[in-house]
Simulated scan of single mutants.
Amino acid sequence: MTSYDIQSNREWWAQRWVDVLESFGWRRRLERARNYARQGNVLQIEFKGAKVSALVQGTAPEPYKVSLSLDPFNEEQWQYVIESMSERAIFSAKLLAGEMPQNIEEVFTANGLSLFPLTKFDIHSRCSCPDPANPCKHIGAVYYLLGDRFSEDPFVLFQLRGRTKEQIITALRQMRSVPQEDTIADDAPETATPTSIDLHKFWHYDSQLEPSLVVITPPPGNETVLDVLGPPFKTETSGGQGAIVAQLVQEHLKSIYAQVSQQAVLAAMATGSQEG
């Protein structure tokens, strides 16, 4: 297992995991745990369903066995969560790209759940070492290494709550396809046969739209193209100047996108009122 280094550029969900753990008042114990993680004492981490098993080398000749788990959500709870995810295309797009949507926690809180542990009692951990404290430094070292795993694969966090990446992606695809299938089945006569769709004309509509039925609203979220695609460039200037320049350009482009979005909505409203 590679040694652990304190990362200043962790993905936000991995940093959130670390911040949550450190907020439980374990600072002194976790400081020793960080040292263990840095020194490479975590020899192995395995995921067995929603549980984590690890081997951590301590002062004894044989490594200690560590187990860790969170309370998994049940079938009904995951059903509600995935339904909420399917209603927002940006969630599916980012998760398919291996990223955690910035406001993903809203989906869980809206259904009375929390993706991250709320209290220390939400984390169930054991270690074979003689230290009665929980977390001991061996468990704490696993905590930090898990944060790195979350950065590499955000679906590991979902797995601790009871759903694998394959299960979530499959369920999302099924959810997003069901309404279209139901609409076709409800509207079509029993004797109707499927008709072919001309993809080149899919977005074309020749009939006149009823103006009273057209409602123009700003986008539901505040994410821009920059949030979805990330910074347009990377600068590696020494002394930290490159990061400052990149941040200034990013903020400037965001303000431009916000102004353009607002002007587009106003222009569309003006056009709609003239046509009406």
Rank of each mutant, 00 (worst) to 15 (best):
122 D>V: 07
196 S>G: 01
177 S>W: 06
155 F>D: 03
210 E>L: 06
149 R>E: 15
184 I>Q: 11
151 S>V: 14
189 P>E: 08
167 Q>C: 06
143 Y>N: 12
129 C>H: 05
178 V>C: 04
189 P>Y: 08
155 F>K: 01
142 V>C: 04
142 V>L: 06
218 P>H: 13
134 N>T: 04
170 T>M: 07
162 G>E: 03
130 P>C: 07
128 S>W: 06
214 V>C: 11
181 E>Y: 08
170 T>N: 11
202 F>K: 10
213 L>M: 09
180 Q>I: 14
192 A>K: 04
223 E>Y: 09
214 V>L: 15
185 A>N: 13
228 V>T: 07
155 F>T: 07
204 H>Q: 13
221 G>A: 10
157 L>V: 02
155 F>W: 03
132 P>A: 02
136 C>W: 02
155 F>Y: 13
136 C>S: 02
170 T>R: 13
131 D>P: 03
156 V>T: 03
130 P>Q: 07
227 D>C: 03
162 G>D: 04
160 L>C: 01
174 Q>F: 01
198 D>K: 02
199 L>R: 04
182 D>Y: 06
159 Q>A: 01
116 F>N: 12
163 R>T: 01
165 K>T: 05
228 V>H: 03
116 F>H: 13
153 D>L: 12
170 T>Q: 12
191 T>F: 11
214 V>T: 12
215 V>Y: 04
178 V>F: 09
136 C>H: 03
150 F>R: 11
161 R>L: 00
223 E>G: 01
224 T>V: 02
120 K>T: 08
221 G>H: 13
160 L>Y: 00
215 V>P: 00
153 D>S: 15
219 P>D: 11
184 I>H: 10
158 F>I: 00
148 D>H: 12
193 T>C: 01
212 S>Q: 12
135 P>A: 00
137 K>A: 05
126 R>G: 09
213 L>Q: 15
205 Y>H: 15
195 T>W: 00
152 E>N: 08
197 I>E: 01
222 N>H: 10
143 Y>R: 10
226 L>R: 08
146 L>T: 10
133 A>Y: 02
128 S>M: 05
121 F>N: 14
190 E>V: 10
140 G>N: 10
148 D>Q: 14
160 L>F: 00
123 I>C: 09
201 K>F: 09
133 A>M: 01
138 H>R: 04
120 K>D: 15
212 S>Y: 05
202 F>Q: 10
228 V>N: 01
148 D>N: 14
143 Y>H: 12
218 P>W: 13
219 P>H: 09
192 A>L: 04
133 A>F: 02
190 E>G: 04
139 I>E: 07
151 S>H: 13
169 I>H: 04
143 Y>P: 11
123 I>R: 09
119 T>K: 12
153 D>W: 13
222 N>S: 08
159 Q>V: 00
155 F>N: 05
130 P>F: 08
161 R>C: 01
205 Y>E: 15
211 P>W: 06
193 T>M: 08
190 E>I: 10
139 I>G: 02
211 P>E: 03
217 T>Q: 11
175 M>C: 04
172 L>R: 05
128 S>F: 05
153 D>V: 09
190 E>K: 09
145 L>F: 09
145 L>Q: 14
191 T>N: 12
139 I>V: 07
203 W>P: 00
152 E>D: 13
179 P>Y: 10
